[in-house]
Amino acid sequence: MTAGAYRFPVTTEPRLVHIVDEVPQLDDTSSLTMVVVLDGFLDAGNAAAIASRHLVELTERRVGPGDGEQSNGPVVATFDVDQFHDYRARRPAMSFVRDHYEGYDAPRLVVRLLHDSGDTPYLLLQGPEPDNRWEAFTRAVLEVVERFGVTRVVNMGSVPMAVPHTRPIAITHHANNADLISGDSPWRGELRIPSSAQALLEVRLGEWGHDAMGFVAHIPHYLAQFDYPRASLALLENVERAGRLIIDLTDLRAEAEGREEEVARYLSSNEEVADVVEALERQYDAFERAEESGTSLLAADQPLPTGEEIGQQFQQFLAGLEGPDEQQG
């Protein structure tokens, strides 16, 4: 090197995803679905997280206990979570035992190989939604999609809405390919909404020529901070059809029914809360009638309670549902 010359150091982009070289179970697969569940922003009522947990538990039963990591579905791709996670914004839990730390719950962003009830293989991408580097994350997911020959990506999410729990769970369908949409959208015009890593992934995969779609469940907003398995059930019913999978929903359906009975018992003993739910029911039914007749999307004679009114009424409701095993961190 000549005097005074400066050579910039050679740097390389860290590898963001590590993919298993050999996955024999996928060698003869011509159609492969990858389900995406990213915890955090888009998961009111923990609906997607519960659905994801159910899929993993089904694999545990199929494989049997005592097989370690394999019982949860073998990990076929691991993302470098340090590149995506903001530890100060979402601090992982750990234990302090008398005089030392232990049991650090390190965040993991992985792709697992699962099998449905008919032994059809599929992939599950699960973990915390990236806090940063979304574009890099989508490119890393593209590597997974192209390495394993994924033919369809299906993601799940849920949002709080002013809807009563006594009516069917509404699901918003979305896709980067119009041919994948199975039903009419309840939304009209353009909505400007906060983005998410899942949404960006769907957009980018479409630009790169890969089909991606998803389902968003509408959660009664007075139940949004508590587990709501009924919405998880609705999400998985849609994933089942979209992904051409067979998913045993027996236990999840029983869990959902148990939660609905618990809510009903509380309402029967609290007239004020029941009145708010009835107001939501009237608004919901008026909206449905207006949609069917094509007259108006809103019923002027059935005002929806304000967020403040509902919040006041349901403060006691939420406290009544919260038990030692249901508190959210």
Rank of each mutant, 00 (worst) to 15 (best):
T2N: 15
R7W: 12
P9F: 09
P9K: 15
P14H: 12
I19Y: 10
V23M: 07
P24G: 08
V36N: 00
V37A: 11
V37E: 08
A44R: 01
A47R: 01
A51P: 01
V56C: 02
V56D: 02
L58I: 00
L58W: 00
E60N: 09
R61L: 13
R61H: 12
G64C: 05
E69G: 00
T78H: 03
D80K: 02
V81L: 07
F84S: 00
F84H: 01
Y87W: 13
R88T: 14
R98G: 00
D99V: 09
H100S: 12
Y104C: 02
Y104M: 14
V111H: 06
L113F: 09
L114M: 06
D119P: 03
D119I: 03
T120F: 01
T120M: 03
L124D: 00
P130C: 06
E135M: 05
F137G: 00
T138H: 02
E143C: 09
R147D: 13
V150S: 07
T151L: 07
V154I: 15
P160G: 11
V163T: 11
P168Q: 06
P168W: 09
T172D: 15
A175Y: 02
L180S: 04
S185Y: 04
P186R: 07
R188A: 13
G189H: 08
I193F: 04
A197N: 01
L200H: 06
W208Y: 10
W208S: 06
M213I: 09
G214S: 05
V216G: 01
H218E: 14
H221T: 06
Q225E: 14
Y228N: 06
R230M: 10
R230S: 13
R230N: 11
S232L: 07
S232D: 09
G243H: 03
I246N: 13
A254H: 10
N270E: 12
E271G: 04
E272V: 09
E272F: 07
A274I: 01
D275G: 03
D285C: 00
F287N: 09
A290K: 06
G294Q: 08
T295Y: 10
L298Y: 14
L304Q: 14
P305L: 04
G307W: 07
I310F: 02
Q313H: 13
F314G: 00
P324F: 08
P324A: 11
E326M: 13
